[in-house]
Simulated assay, not measured.
Amino acid sequence: MLRHILPTAALAVILASGAQADDGRAKLTIVYDQQLPNVEGKSIKAVLVEYGPGGASPAHTHPKSAFIYATVLEGAIRSQVNSGPAKVYHAGESFAEFPGDFHRVSANARSTEPARLLAVFVVGTNETNLTNFED
């Protein structure tokens, strides 16, 4: 059983105030961080990603140890991983990223309403930088 949900404020990784910065970037907040008791050196970390209308994140990678499962909670997210096609995911739909993947596009697919997704990482416990932006 997963326990010990840590307070969001104590774990916040905020790139901007509000759902989107003036430069259109997303707001990222770690909402869960738990070491796996049966897999030494691995943790589950969940990140809430909030995009304002028309918002986007720069191209990025994640730690080489990271497997990511993402679910769209609200709105629609446009995503492109590696050289695959760009795809729009709507609320309730999910996608995965594998270790070493390059996330070329991650954006709100709509210009008039916000979008949110929950990205759940299985990652090395010592990883502190979950997203490496390419800009």
Rank of each mutant, 00 (worst) to 15 (best):
H4G: 13
D101R: 15
R104L: 02
E113P: 00
I77H: 04
P58W: 10
H62S: 10
R116K: 15
D23S: 10
G52R: 12
S111V: 08
F67L: 15
N108A: 02
R116P: 06
E93R: 12
S83M: 06
A109R: 12
Y69M: 12
D22R: 02
D23T: 12
N82D: 11
G54W: 04
Q20Y: 06
F67N: 12
A91Y: 10
T128K: 15
A26C: 09
T71E: 14
R25C: 05
T112K: 15
Q34Y: 09
I44V: 13
T128L: 02
L117N: 12
S65T: 14
G52H: 05
D33H: 10
E93P: 11
H103R: 08
A86Y: 06
K87I: 07
R104W: 03
Q35V: 15
G41E: 11
A56V: 06
V123I: 14
H60V: 01
A9G: 04
H60A: 07
A26F: 00
D135F: 10
E127S: 09
L48E: 02
P53W: 00
I14C: 04
T71S: 13
R104D: 08
S79E: 13
A119G: 03
V120P: 01
D135W: 11
V88P: 09
T71V: 10
S57T: 13
P53R: 14
A107T: 10
V47D: 06
Q80G: 00
I68Y: 05
I44T: 03
I14D: 06
G124I: 01
G18C: 10
N82Q: 03
K87E: 10
V47L: 10
T131H: 02
E97A: 07
Y69F: 14
V81L: 09
A66D: 10
V105A: 09
G52L: 11
A56N: 08
P99C: 03
V31Q: 04
V49E: 01
F98Y: 14
P85K: 01
R116E: 03
I5Q: 13
A46C: 04
L28Q: 04
A12E: 05
L2P: 14
E113R: 14
I14E: 06
G24D: 11
E40C: 05
T61F: 02
G54H: 04
F102Y: 11
G55N: 06
E40F: 08
N126M: 14
P7E: 08
F95M: 08
L6K: 15
L6R: 15
F121K: 14
T8Q: 09
S43H: 05
V31S: 04
R25V: 09
K45F: 00
R78D: 00
V81R: 07
D135R: 00
V72D: 04
L117M: 12
N132T: 12
S94L: 02
S94A: 14
T61D: 07
L28P: 00
H90N: 09
E50W: 02
A86Q: 11
A9K: 13
E97D: 07
T71F: 08
S83Q: 09
L130C: 06
V49D: 05
P7M: 05
H103D: 04
E74L: 01
S106H: 12
